[in-house]
């Protein structure tokens, strides 16, 4: 999957990803229309299907609102690459099927507007703009099992049967 980079700094919190004034809805499309609004007013206008968010430390800190990864996913973003993620955001993303990758070298070497080719099965991130290649930290085996089951809901479906 090839996409264009939208780059952010450290500590992007869930209040700027989706401000609480829009939490009176659970509709993914409506949430997406306000995604990142308080940190980048034009984000929802500029983002295209398949684009990639790249950020520094502690992405998704703050509230547990699942509306945050839902808004990002519904806005067309294919995956988020960061140095590390806040833990509730990490769990929520895996659970709803928003791919997230941890890779410090990639974050350092990628700039706003770069084009990336990301292979989620191998974790290989190719920067087509600079020609550099990176490899993301692999997921723990239990998380891979969850992903292979198609997310937490499908995993649980097997348990309640």
């Amino acid at each position: 999957m090839i996409g264009k980079v939208h780059k952010f700094k450290s500590n992007v919190d869930t209040d700027v990803i989706i401000p609480a004034r829009y939490l009176n809805t659970t509709d993914p499309k409506e949430l997406a229309s306000h995604c990142m609004e308080d940190i980048d007013v034009d984000f929802s206008k500029n983002v295209k299907q398949g684009d990639i968010i790249v950020a520094e430390d502690n992405f998704g800190c703050g509230s547990s609102r699942e509306h945050a990864p839902i808004a990002i996913k519904a806005s067309g973003v294919f995956c988020v690459i960061a140095n590390d993620f806040a833990r509730i955001f990490y769990r929520n993303s895996i659970n709803i099927g928003l791919p997230i990758l941890e890779c410090k070298e990639a974050v350092a070497g990628i700039s706003e507007g770069d084009e990336l080719d990301v292979d989620l099965t191998t974790g290989v991130i190719k920067n087509l703009t600079t020609g550099k290649e990176y490899k993301a930290k692999p997921f723990p085996s239990y998380i891979i099992e969850l992903i292979n089951d198609g997310g937490l809901i499908n995993h649980i479906k097997k348990m309640v049967k």
Binding site: S64, R65, E66, R91, N92, N95, L152, I153
Partner: peptide, 20 residues
């Protein structure tokens, strides 16, 4: 500890969850 809505919805069904 805090979790998201999908974790909560699944936990309401089975009464357990995973932790690292």
């Amino acid at each position: 500890t805090g979790v998201g809505s999908t974790d909560l919805g699944c936990a309401m069904a089975v009464g357990n969850t995973w932790f690292k």
